[in-house]
Each structure stands twice: as C-alpha cells, then as structure tokens.
Amino acid sequence: MSSRKKTLLKVIILGDSGVGKTSLMQQFVNKKFSHQYKATIGADFLTKELPIDDKTVTMQIWDTAGQERFQSLGVAFYRGADCCILVYDVNNAKSFESLLAWKDEFLIQANVSLPETFPFIVIGNKIDIDENKRVVSYKKAAQVCQQLGNVPYFETSAKDGINVEEAFDVVSRNALQQEEANDEFNDDYNDAINIHLDGEAGNCTC
C-alpha cells in the first residue's frame, strides 16, 4: 500500500434514544455540550483528525437516530465500519438491556466479515447525574461487557467531558487495528483471486 494513502476510520455510534450519542460525538470532536440538541433524525457524521502513535488518522464518527424503526434505511452507511460504540445511560436500565440487541443489529446491518473479532466498545454515559438515580452499577456493566466478548467498557459524562477522550482513544486504536486487519484481509483476498486467475483456471473442481 502506498504511504500516501490516508487512513480513514469509520466509527458508528448506536444506542437507545436519548442516551447521549450526539453529545458524546460533539464532546469528542468539538469539545462542547449543548442543552439544545434535538433528537437526531436520519444520520450525520463528524470527522476528526487524531494522532495514534506516529500516525495521523481521520476518524469519521457516525451519529444515528435511536428509534429502532429508523435504523433500516440508513444501513448503507454502516458498511465498512471499523468500530462500533454502543452507548447506554447509566440511569436508565432499559437502555442497558438494549445493548445486546444493538450489537446484533449492527452485525447484521453492517455485514461484518468476522463478527467474533469486530471491535465494539460500550459506553455508560451520564455519570454526572445524581449518584442515587443511577440504576446500573459499574460492576454489573463491566461484567456484562465481559460476557459480550471482553468488550472494553467506559463510563463517561458527555456533559462534563469526563472520560470521553479516553474512551475514544481506545476506539481509535481498536478501529485502526481493525482497519489494518481488513486491509490485510482484502489484500489476501485479492491475491487469492489473482493467483486463481493467473494460475490453472481449468483445474477448478467446483
């Protein structure tokens, strides 16, 4: 691969309506929080350039609508994702219970080639809210994430900018790994085709 080629990492944020997907994206990319965000309709993305070790990559972060029925139309944009962030609200049990459904939904829609190794990250958002309103404990969440396949887990406050950088740092590293693995996979795949075409096509036994 030529060194000129840019690395573009595609990241999809999923989760129930109102858990803070837009806020997380805005906090990470623009370092701001607003009380005036509206419910996302359709999909939108922001990009951010960031250094990973000695490399600079561009992260394209996709924000989606939380209501399930609106998911099916936007699937074209999930293809080729390098990482998926599953977000729930630590003060809302239902949004936590939905995590598995979102994960499965993503794997189907994004048409991921190797679901077992595809990088997910779980974020429990809104830790700034009064501790006694919290319904999902750290312990419980971490345990479930382990069961989901050792998925990294972060607790954040998009409002106060707590832990957002850290979560996205892991997102970017895992996405880059996935991107490079995908590249290799595609290269191997292409090589295989070339060999096949160059070689004895007549010997095909199928």
Binding site: S17, G18, H35, Q36, Y37, K38, A39
Partner: peptide, 8 residues
C-alpha cells in the same frame, strides 16, 4: 425525552 429537546 423528546419534548425536552424540542426547539429549545
């Protein structure tokens, strides 16, 4: 949820 983020 949605009412609280309607045209604020």
């Amino acid at each position: 949820k949605d009412v609280k983020r309607t045209d604020r």
